[in-house]
């Protein structure tokens, strides 16, 4: 069942240059994807591709100079993009949980962990204090924090990075949201800690048949924890599908380049040119935005690439998707 359906989401940056000229960048370009119940969807791409911006647009957390200019994001029959701020606030943290990247800065340093968890519940519904505290303790235990009763009284600075990230997860889950959006939930954590956090996330999503969107640049996380994946480049989703399909038969040149750039597949000394300058959103090439960096660029790439459906929801925005499908990297 579809929880969140993002359809043709478009977000612009409007800014002024030092020379006082107005510039508009199409930071998100017809972004469409869905998150279903009981699945984790991965959103991957390099810095500036628009991963976090997608989440911020959907959650109404955009700040100037960014603003949504088109599309819709339907959650529970309501379009989040046109929801009044008060209703959006009500949804956020209640029906939609949010885990942000930096646990250190997202906890209130002057408030004990337990109080923050209670506050989180009371922000949305009047709850009896004892009930709220009981639930907070249970939640801390559920995210794998030892001695949850004692930890309720801990200050944020007393927590290690991994523990702080668990607390943040508890904050996001305490109101039993139906959708969880996690922006780089394990970036900066040690691998052994990352493993524990992700195991927990998957277990909770399955148990509660929630939906989750994980924004990450770590393809290993996507490969092992997500059901489906959307690959972003320069504000567009260039490839989307089940993790197996995208990782086994990557059919967009960018996805293919990304996969061959992972250390596990990288062949040092092959002399192959990987990467390239980050796309300039204010000056994207006409047609396919990836064509300046693409190995397979042809004349036709100056026209917008069609969305090619390779079956079972595996969609690719490339003129050559069919040719590339199933070819070795």
């Amino acid at each position: 069942m579809t929880l969140l359906a993002i359809d043709n989401l478009e977000t612009d940056f409007v800014s002024r240059t030092l020379d006082d000229e107005i510039r508009v960048a199409h930071a998100l370009n017809k972004v469409s994807f869905e998150v279903n119940r009981g699945e984790i969807v991965g959103l991957v791409g390099e810095t500036g591709a628009g991963k976090s911006l997608t989440a911020q647009s959907v959650l109404g957390l955009l700040r100037a100079p960014a603003r949504v200019v088109g599309g819709e994001a339907v959650f529970d029959g309501r379009d989040l993009l046109t929801l009044p701020p008060a209703e959006m606030n009500e949804l956020r943290g209640y029906e939609i949980g949010l885990v942000v990247q930096n646990p250190r800065t997202s906890l209130d340093p002057l408030c004990r962990i337990g109080d923050q968890l209670v506050r989180m519940q009371r922000a949305h519904r009047p709850v009896n204090g004892r009930v709220a505290r009981k639930k907070a303790v249970d939640m801390l235990a559920a995210v794998g924090i030892p001695e949850p009763e004692r930890r309720m009284r801990a200050w944020p600075h007393e927590l290690s990075g991994g523990m702080a990230q668990r607390v943040l997860m508890a904050m996001a889950l305490i109101n039993e949201p139906r959708l969880l959006i996690a922006d780089e939930p394990t970036t900066g954590l040690d691998v052994t800690v990352q493993a524990a956090i992700l195991d927990l996330l998957r277990q909770i999503v399955l148990e509660r048949s929630m939906g989750a969107l994980i924004i990450t640049h770590d393809l290993g996380v996507v490969a092992h924890y997500c059901e489906r994946v959307a690959v972003m480049f320069a504000g567009s989703i260039v490839e989307e599908g089940t993790v197996d399909a995208v990782f086994e038969t990557p059919s967009h040149p960018y996805t293919r380049a990304l996969l061959s750039a992972t250390p596990e597949r990288l062949k040092l000394g092959s002399g192959r040119q990987l990467g390239g300058p980050p796309p300039d959103l204010y000056n994207l090439p006409i047609g396919c935005h990836y064509r300046d960096r693409c190995e397979r660029v042809r004349d036709i790439c100056t026209t917008p690439p069609p969305a090619t459906d390779l079956g079972e929801g595996h969609r690719v925005q490339c003129h050559f998707a069919k040719d590339l499908e199933g070819q070795p990297l």
């Binding site: 691998v191 052994t192 493993a195 393809l219 290993g220 490969a223 197996d244 990782f247």
Partner: peptide, 8 residues
């Protein structure tokens, strides 16, 4: 704990 980018 290392996650290779290969679902298989």
């Amino acid at each position: 704990a290392h996650l290779p980018p290969n679902p298989r």
